[in-house]
């Protein structure tokens, strides 16, 4: 239903419509699929929600890499459930994007032909089992930080999808921290493995919040439209403030020479991520960009016969009924 009937009735002059829209959003009213909305609002949401969906789908790969090599049946079952959740999150989000008037096929096409973006973090390799811990703890931790405010996003279907996702993410983060706890209390080799994972995932995790506010292209409008509630730098600061004590609990060292707690402000002062690396990964030059997309394409192609068979089966059944 949502993806149809978008040819809304439009009353009044365009400026008046726009003003009414801005006033509704400012008053914290939710925008629903068939409501009138400015084209730019629709485009911004399609971009953001679909990038988010693509990130969930591509995000299955770094962890999928370790399912067959999980160290115990318990860990394997948990990791499998987590990766299945990521697929579910992708589907909730694609459905939310579709309510804005774009088809699933177009969305999938944009990902497969390489012009859609997804979170830079998934272009880093998962080299050891400890990476499963670091991803759950740091990457899902950063994602939660980003996503909790999105539960109050002005666009109803996106906000509702985020409520569901946030509930499930908290299992993801805890299972990651449990892996990190186990490793850091294990043998010296295991602890070194945990430290190595933190060393490699710390900076990419900070980059997940995006560029500095001063360089963020879409921030102001998104905040006015209540798509975004906090700025990139605010969220990054919050993440560092909650995560550093967790690293201390694990007895691990955050790989940042300039990191210190500033008692006056109550916040941690921390160093600059390598923004050249960030931009390179976004441009497609990260360690795994090509591999991720190639894998997604081949999974899509390998699944073609299943989709065709399902369609043929449905058609046959429909003919029998007729």
């Amino acid at each position: 239903m949502y993806s149809q009937a978008l040819d809304e009735r439009e009353d009044g002059a365009p400026e008046a419509r726009n003003e009414r829209f801005e006033a509704r959003v400012a008053a914290e009213e939710k925008v629903e699929p068939n409501d009138w909305m400015p084209d730019a609002y629709r485009r911004t949401l399609i971009r953001q929600v679909s990038q988010h969906a693509h990130s969930e789908i591509i995000g299955m790969q770094p962890e999928g890499n370790w399912i067959t090599r999980a160290p115990s049946l318990r860990r394997k079952a948990i990791l499998l459930a987590k990766v299945q959740d990521e697929a579910g999150h992708g589907l909730y989000l694609y459905a939310a994007a579709e309510t804005l008037g774009i088809t699933r096929e177009e969305l999938v096409e944009q990902l497969l032909d390489g012009h859609a973006k997804y979170s830079s973090i998934f272009n880093y390799p998962t080299l050891t089992w400890a990476d499963m811990g670091a991803i759950g703890w740091l990457v899902d931790g950063a994602a939660i930080m980003n996503q909790i405010p999105l539960c109050r996003c002005s666009y109803g279907p996106y906000a509702r999808a985020m409520v569901r996702i946030c509930k499930e993410e908290s299992f993801h983060q805890r299972q990651g921290f449990e892996i990190m706890t186990t490793l850091s209390r294990g043998t010296p080799e295991q602890k070194a493995m945990a430290q190595d994972a933190l060393d490699r995932w710390w900076w990419p995790s900070l980059m997940m919040f995006g560029p500095h506010d001063s360089e963020s292209v879409h921030s102001d409008t998104s905040i006015r439209w209540k798509i975004k509630r906090f700025s990139n730098d605010e969220l990054r600061q919050k993440f560092v403030d909650v995560t550093v004590p967790q690293a201390e609990f694990l007895g691990l060292r955050v790989p940042d020479e300039s990191l210190r707690f500033d008692a006056a402000t109550g916040h941690h002062v921390f160093g600059e991520p390598d923004w050249d690396e960030f931009r390179a990964v976004l441009r497609g030059e990260g360690p795994c960009n090509r591999q991720r997309l190639e894998h997604r394409r081949s999974a899509h192609d390998d699944g073609a016969w299943v989709r065709e068979a399902a369609a043929a089966h449905a058609e046959k059944k429909a003919r029998r009924v007729a």
Binding site: A95, E98, A161, A310
Partner: peptide
């Protein structure tokens, strides 16, 4: 709760 794509009711 949301929506899904499927070829038929069973799916």
């Amino acid at each position: 709760v949301g929506s899904v794509h499927a070829v038929d009711a069973e799916m």
